[in-house]
Design a protein around this nucleic acid. Sequence first.
DNA 1: GTCTATAGTAGGATAGAC
DNA 2: GTCTATCCTACTATAGAC
Lengths: 212, 212
Amino acid sequence: MIDQKKPDTKQRLLDGALAAVREHGVSGTSARTIAAAAGVNQALVFYHFGSVDDLLGAACRQATEQRVAHYADRFAAVTSLRELLQVGRTLHAAELAQGNVSVLAQMLAAAQSNERLAEPIRATFALWTGEIETVLRRVLTGSPIAEVADVPGLAQAISAAFVGLELFEGVDAAGGRRSMEAIDQLAVLVEVMDELGPLATRVLRSKIKKRL
Amino acid sequence: MIDQKKPDTKQRLLDGALAAVREHGVSGTSARTIAAAAGVNQALVFYHFGSVDDLLGAACRQATEQRVAHYADRFAAVTSLRELLQVGRTLHAAELAQGNVSVLAQMLAAAQSNERLAEPIRATFALWTGEIETVLRRVLTGSPIAEVADVPGLAQAISAAFVGLELFEGVDAAGGRRSMEAIDQLAVLVEVMDELGPLATRVLRSKIKKRL
DNA sequence: GTCTATAGTAGGATAGAC
DNA sequence: GTCTATCCTACTATAGAC
């Protein structure tokens, strides 16, 4: 926040942390593997970040910020749910090629029983949900879906589902792709729903009344 | 598979492994913590299972088998997507109350960079997807969705998404519930789609043609 | 700020007594 | 099959020289 002219050790550690998670997984990541990836001394992890967990949290957050910023214009250009999914798939493919398929996902898993990691991960996750929420709100304007859906909740659900898919793909690549295709097909349904317009809206409303 | 009359040490280790993951998370789970939870000696982990990873894989598999069996009749009674989701939510709530919200999810994360863990986890995951696939195939019979959707792929996507939601809920309980609600609302849409029947089917088909 | 060295701890795994 | 004892490795974290 204060000094922007130090892309040195501190930044190398942040990058090294991500590299370590990519290569060894969260459980295989330590101050030593991070330092090795960063090409710096192991003790500097503690000097600059206090603990491994704090470094991991910071690294995850920074990386996500950059990633979100990098995709901001693409998100802004989205005009339909399928396009949103398309951006998601592109993003996913890029992460995959870059090797950090599931860095956030693994952090999320590690955060389950690590309160020190949980807070930064929550914040990181919120960066994604925020972005998606904005898109959803714009895309769903005038759609019957907007009348039923809790947009923030939906944004969280989408983000969470995406994380699950990343984890699954990490263990079963073919299955992951297939799942993605299946969701894409489902998105067609939602669009059809939108195109039905007034009729769907009417049926929808009555359906909702029954439900409440 | 051979001896069913030994609910002793081996079983205690299997249970202890799950207990350890529940309590300490995957990263905090070791032969020692497992043995402590099981009330047996640490060396027995290696005598009976060879390695901690093998024990974890076996434990996850067995637990999932039991869980799937326990919910088999409830799955069999499902007649709509919303009911499927309802069963999913019940199941989720039960897991939550029992404390093993995200055992499978955490295993999946750990398996990302651990081939020894990956294979059993893949198999375990397949138990869930298989169950869901059966339900989907039955529920979607005659539905326009069935004509678009790759059912096995969809089953995998649903399972994976569920895992993601579990991880999210583990870090943000309120957010997790809200996501679940949002999905529930979306499910209404799908049902409306089904009820539209012939019209939707027609629109759907033309939409698909455009897409291909 | 960065390095070496090291204390202290915990974990995987095995040997060997029982 | 189960336990004790133990080896070795790897980790977090700090102290102190530079």
